[in-house]
């Protein structure tokens, strides 16, 4: 009996650890929505709030889709803490098999808004349902992570998820996300990535400049030019030019449609169901 009791305790202990390692959620009720105070509840968003899992915001990794092993989660968790520590921005990683919202964007935004994450921070969602990755940014993170940077990150990592290398993908995400937090480092990385482009630009420009200089040097050697005019021989006292007639021949009007062009720079934002602004972007995998 004692043995059985002992085994039971061990089993329970193991299962608790497992519960901790997977994800602990709290139940939301109409009476207790478990949302930050600043969020205004309306009929519209109430349903969405209830559909959003309520979690412990300190866990940082919410692996609902169970894509990571415990060991991997531990390492990633360490990296997230380091990121938060260094940047003062929050960061969470969410994986789901089932998306009960309209889009990855909506899911990511709601998940961040309706839990107790910091005012400034980001959330990285791996949505196995729609096969999308999505980076949602909020507060200062919106301005730090411009559309260009987010696209760049997505471009660099989506392949890992196509290849089911979730741990590598997430690790790479955190690495890039941290690097891109500082513009200086981002620019350095961008430069590295653009090296090929720079070489091509330099090749083209230097070819052009060399050509122009050589043409100038070659023309400098040409000191002979056929005279085709006689301007300098005009007798200025005997010059008469008059317009005799100017006959109207026709008029033609053509019109072209004005193309509306849109340009973007920096970060584009959208408003989530909670009413707060988010930035971000995603990529299919």
């Amino acid at each position: 009996m004692k043995k059985i009791k002992y085994l039971l305790i061990v089993f329970l202990l193991i299962s608790t650890i497992k519960v901790n390692a997977s994800t602990q959620t709290f139940e939301r009720t109409e009476e207790n929505l478990l949302i930050p105070d600043e969020i205004e509840v309306t009929e519209k968003n109430k349903e969405l709030i209830l559909k959003t899992p309520s979690i412990n915001e300190k866990e940082k990794i919410y692996d609902f889709a169970e894509l990571l092993t415990e060991e991997e989660e531990k390492i990633i968790y360490g990296k997230i803490l380091k990121y938060i520590d260094e940047t003062f921005l929050d960061l969470a990683i969410v994986t789901i098999n089932d998306n009960n919202k309209n889009s990855s964007m909506e899911y990511a935004d709601d998940f961040y808004d309706y839990n107790f994450f910091k005012e400034n921070g980001s959330l990285f969602l791996i949505d196995m349902d729609t096969r999308n990755i999505w980076i949602s940014t909020k507060g200062k993170a919106i301005t730090i992570y411009t559309d260009e940077k987010i696209n760049n990150i997505n471009e660099n990592i989506y392949k890992y998820f196509s290849d089911e290398k979730y741990n590598e993908g997430i690790t790479k995400f955190i690495e890039l996300f941290k690097d891109y937090e500082s513009d200086k480092k981002y620019n350095a990385i961008k430069k590295e990535q653009n090296k090929g482009k720079y070489i091509i630009i330099s090749l083209v420009v230097s070819t052009l400049i060399t050509l122009i200089i050589m043409i100038i040097l070659v023309t400098k050697n040409k000191l002979v030019q056929k005279a085709t005019t006689a301007d300098s021989y005009i007798n200025n006292d005997k010059i008469q030019i008059k317009q005799i007639s100017d006959i109207f021949k026709g008029r033609h009007v053509s019109k072209t449609k004005i193309e509306s062009s849109s340009s973007s720079g920096g970060s584009s934002t959208h408003t989530s169901s909670s009413g707060s602004s988010h930035g971000g972007g995603g990529h299919g995998f």
Binding site: Q240, I244, G250
Partner: peptide
């Protein structure tokens, strides 16, 4: 607009 212009 087109014209035929004559100059002397």
């Amino acid at each position: 607009t087109t014209f035929l212009t004559t100059e002397s």
